[in-house]
């Protein structure tokens, strides 16, 4: 027994030694170095931004004639826009769009406007004016809403008619990008309420959440002019400059002109709303993007809800 025990022990030691010699240590796995792929976590708001951007891209190349009025406005914002492109478009979207719930509703009893739109019955004196205005101005004010729908259909048809070269270009999507650049000047003008120019977007952009928050802040203080006819002419665009703490740096400027006699009233109410609401609470780290913003006050949105 002793013999076999000794041999067994010897055998084990030999196996261990052999194992140590033959398998000195684990081989390192040589991992091929892969280029790291940066992954961004996208929040819902950023995602919606991306989608908004896509919407914008399509309408841009469209052949629609930019309205004369807006064209005039454009030259101003553009030069400013270059240094800080994002803020302007974004803000434009803020006020008008969705929630017009609180302030406008009290107006409901009077309801002059909704009636006025379809058929200017109530005010005899006003009729001629409104009628004319509708014919003339119907184009400028309402379009912003209508545009998105119309433009998409026609462009498709037109493209189909185009030559083979065009189609190839479409496939490459090169034309989109180019046309986007060309029409960059027009972009700002075409921005509808609710639409945002994100084409130059970067991470410094204000997100939808923040935009909505700002809009809520402003709406809280805004008493839109009540009982005014032709609300569609009363779109007021204000350019406001803010300090980092969210308060006004200088008095808000009216950017657009209104032909309505009540435009001044609407503009005043908008200015009042801005003054009353300051300071706005905005993310300070994105100050660059909201230092200067344009706010659209559209009574129609408020009234129609």
């Amino acid at each position: 027994m002793k013999k076999s025990l000794a041999t067994s022990f010897l055998l084990h030691v030999m196996v261990l030694l052999a194992g140590m010699i033959v398998l000195p240590s684990a081989k390192e796995y040589t991992v091929e170095k892969l280029e790291s792929v940066p992954i961004d976590l996208v929040t819902i708001s950023e995602f919606t931004k991306l989608r908004a951007q896509k919407k914008d891209e399509k309408p841009e190349p469209e052949p629609e004639p930019p309205k004369p009025e807006k064209a005039e406005e454009k030259p101003e914002p553009e030069p400013e826009a270059r240094p800080e492109p994002k803020p302007q478009p974004e803000i434009a979207a803020l006020p008008p769009e969705p929630e017009a719930p609180r302030p406008p509703e009290p107006v409901a009893p009077e309801q002059p406007k909704p009636e006025a739109r379809p058929e200017p019955e109530p005010a005899p004196a006003a009729k001629p004016q409104t009628a004319e205005k509708k014919v003339e101005k119907a184009t400028p004010a309402p379009r912003p809403r209508v545009k998105p729908r119309r433009p998409r259909r026609p462009p498709v048809k037109k493209r189909r008619k185009f030559d083979v070269d065009r189609i190839a270009a479409l496939l490459n999507k090169v034309p989109d990008a180019n046309s986007g650049r060309r029409s960059a000047g027009r972009e700002t003008a075409r921005l509808r309420p609710g639409e945002v120019d994100q084409s130059r977007g970067t991470d410094a952009l204000i997100t939808m959440d923040e935009r909505a928050a700002l809009r809520a802040q402003i709406e809280r203080c805004w008493n839109p002019p009540i009982g005014v006819r032709d609300a569609q002419d009363l779109l007021v665009r204000l350019r406001i400059r803010l300090k980092p703490d969210g308060s006004l740096e200088s008095a808000p400027q009216i950017v657009n002109k209104g032909s309505s006699q009540y435009f001044q009233v609407a503009a005043e109410s908008a200015m009042r709303a801005i003054r009353r609401c300051q300071p706005f609470t905005m993310p300070p780290e994105k100050y660059r993007s909201w230092r200067e913003i344009i706010v659209n006050f559209d009574p129609r949105e408020m009234i129609q809800g």
Binding site: K3, S4, L5, A6
Partner: peptide, 17 residues
């Protein structure tokens, strides 16, 4: 376990013979 293995193999050798 090492000791058990040694002991086992000792027994195995011895028994085989």
């Amino acid at each position: 376990l090492f000791l058990a293995s040694v002991w086992c193999w000792a027994i195995i050798l011895e028994k085989t013979f």
